[in-house]
Design a protein around this nucleic acid. Structure first.
Lengths: 249, 249
DNA sequence: GTAAGAGATTGATATGGATCAATTTGGACG
DNA sequence: CGTCCAAATTGATCCATATCAATCTCTTAC
């Protein structure tokens, strides 16, 4: 089912962080060139997942964290009642599974939003390695801390901001993440459906739709399905700050 | 201004985790009795803070994490516009500052909700120690991971649940945290004001008030100012699950 | 003990976004 | 190339909770 992908002949299993264009975003950024091999030793070149496939779900025993290599992943919590809460979107260079480092199974469900390849970091080996490499340990703390901050930021968005503010914030977040990867920050394709955006931002799909068209009418963006062009980034930034501005006066 | 507190004569600066009644909740829980000294070596018996005093704020350079010894702490993010978003409440045995381990300054502001004493863990020394003690490192990952989960849980509450569900969830969370400390899970005093509850849960104060009285009228709780008695824990649990039940059918 | 100000409660009204309903668009597949 | 189903958009209505306004009730300080 998985179609053939180019694999380096001499190392079919071992990943090559050296060659990876994401090494400046991913875990390797924390370590010296000459120590990179130690990380490569524990990384497994992961599977390729088709759109909609699960990388893991809440019943999967927690074994590994995953770095997105290409494509994108949505994580969500599914309640007993079957309700879904999207907790994050992960793009190339970002690490999935940090919320699961307590407990026996994963704390969320991870689903590929498109054809997605990942690198796998077995957690036992990773912990062992971070114990030996202070910079790597520091980076792990850094990443987890950032994840907490992101989540607080989301909570803030959900509890205090209007639909427009939430959506502007999401667009800008995606924009800067594309920019980090040296892709266009103003012209990109949303990896997720309107539904996922709505769920993530605590809105109804209809509201997301309406805000998109409103933004379009105001000349802030141009949207055609998942293709988005940010026409006025400054204005979008103003939208996200509107709220705190009001609190100021 | 700070009134005299009993200090062990032979170790005025060094904390005594051995003696601490919270050692089964706090960092010491991760390590063997005989290694406890290594943790004690880096811990500083912290100051006492009066109600309303800041342990740190967003402009304070990040140096340490703090464990609550007694009292309680509220953390919040203050936006440029001066808006506040409460991100958490911390009770004895819990660790504050995990969200700040990236960046130069703290990611939030921490304020004592009552007279509060803390133990201070200088981050450099803590990282050094976790590098040498795998179980302690593991526990740090565990704690940070849990913090991410908590925050996701909050996001979920904010985006999907009604005012009643949110407040029931908070009451139950506090309840179980009192229980962990072997205090009454049904009869306790809220450390925070209605205002803080409202802010934390993304509600207006008035709504919090109304829900409290509604719960009281339904015989679920008895509330008199900050004194709360949970009269029907099961019913409260039902309230929090109501939502997912509906999603089920 | 009393004054003063903050915090909490209660009531009346307004509103942003949910919900319900109806098209429209677009992509996958035979 | 047309068919079919899911995703997205648009419109009309409703509701939970915010907001505004008015007490009430603590706590703190003098």
């Amino acid at each position: 089912m998985a179609q053939a992908i180019p694999i380096r002949k001499n190392s079919p299993l071992k990943a090559s962080c050296h060659q990876c264009s994401l090494s400046n975003l991913c875990l390797p950024l924390a370590i010296e060139e000459n120590e990179l091999e130690r990380l490569e030793d524990i990384v497994q070149q992961g599977r390729i997942f088709n759109r909609g496939e699960h990388i893991f779900d809440q019943s999967t025993p927690f074994r590994s964290c995953f770095a997105v290599k290409s494509g994108s992943i949505k994580t969500s919590i599914i309640t007993e009642g079957g309700e879904e809460q999207v907790t994050g979107f992960f793009m190339p260079g970002e690490l999935v599974g940090l919320d699961s480092m307590s407990g026996e199974t994963y704390a969320c469900t991870a689903k590929a939003l498109e054809r997605t390849s990942v690198c796998e970091f077995p957690i036992e080996k990773l912990e062992e390695l971070t114990g030996k490499m202070p910079e790597l340990q520091h980076h792990m703390y850094h990443l987890m801390s950032q994840e907490i901050q992101n989540s607080h930021q989301l909570a803030m968005l959900l509890s205090k901001n209007t639909a427009e503010e939430r959506i502007a914030a999401l667009l800008l977040s995606l924009s800067s993440r594309f920019q980090r990867r040296r892709l266009s920050p103003t012209n990109f394709s949303l990896p997720m459906a309107r539904n996922d955006i709505a769920n993530f931002l605590g809105l109804a799909v209809e509201t997301v739709s309406r805000v998109f068209t409103r933004f379009q009418n105001q000349g802030l963006i141009r949207a055609r399905g998942r293709e988005v062009e940010l026409l006025d980034v400054e204005a979008l930034q103003t939208v996200t700050r509107e709220f705190s501005r009001q609190g100021c006066q």
